[in-house]
Amino acid sequence: MSKLEIQTLTLSVADKLLCKDLNFLITQNESWALLGKNGVGKTSLLHSIAGLKDINAGDIKLNNRSLQDYNRAELAKEIGILFQDGLETLPATVIELVMLGRHPHAQSIFNDSEEDIALAFKALKDFSLTKLGDRKIDSLSGGEKQRAAIAMLITQEPNFFLLDEPSNHLDVAFQVSILNKVKEILNEKKASMLMATHDINLAARFCDKFVLLLDNGENFCGDKDEILDPDKLSDAYGCKIKKLETANHMYFYLE
């Protein structure tokens, strides 16, 4: 059983303390949300957990082994990350992009295995991209790009999905349907996700465990009742947040 363990983690960027003594454990098939206001350090924390950013103190362990002891190629099979931006550089088509997700698993230098190609086409289908397969990335809309980036991450088939603002550029319908699809795939593979988002309602809908980052490195981890507490959230975001509960969902709004 795979697990990702954040132990007494301290993280800072240019003398700004992002988190101090942060502890949480992600095990199989869990959905975590990472909440906090703009600039509090959500992206930096995700990058650290992906092994892309040095940590100041503490440790991040994947299956009881410190991240530093993995090489990048090993890590890419276990942990995949969706970045906020940066697909557009040199020209590529959507299918070429999605195929890159198979890079950590590629067996041959030259040939793509049929299995890899099939996975890429399935990801296109899952995220309503089939018709856009041969389109150049730079001709896509923001939402289409975001779906293509998510499809690439899905073909990577990691055990831990780190999603940085997955709902970016997506309309309300896609926000829900794409995340539903991601959760379906997570359940199928017994994989887990940690999603950084500014949308508390989306987090409440899709996640069961929460990390809340505050200014000055303070942080809280726990389940819905503990973290999605109007007082705690108001404190974290610096504004008055209220909660409304229906039979199936909870909603948060500004007073």
């Binding site: 990058h47 992906a50 892309l52 090489n71 990048r72 190629a73 090993e74 890590l75 890419a76 099979k77 995949g80 990350i81 970045f83 940066g86 697909l87 550089t89 040199l90 590529a92 070429e96 992009l97 890159l100 997700g101 890079h103 950590p104 590629a106 230098i109 030259f110 990577q156």
Partner: peptide, 25 residues
């Protein structure tokens, strides 16, 4: 060039994405 061609494909998408996909940048 041929041996590194897959890595070049990945690096074409940016340094962060390349690292996320297992490239030792």
């Amino acid at each position: 060039g041929l041996l590194l061609s897959r890595s070049l494909n990945v690096l074409s998408r940016g340094e962060l994405i390349a690292q996320g996909l297992g490239i030792n940048l």
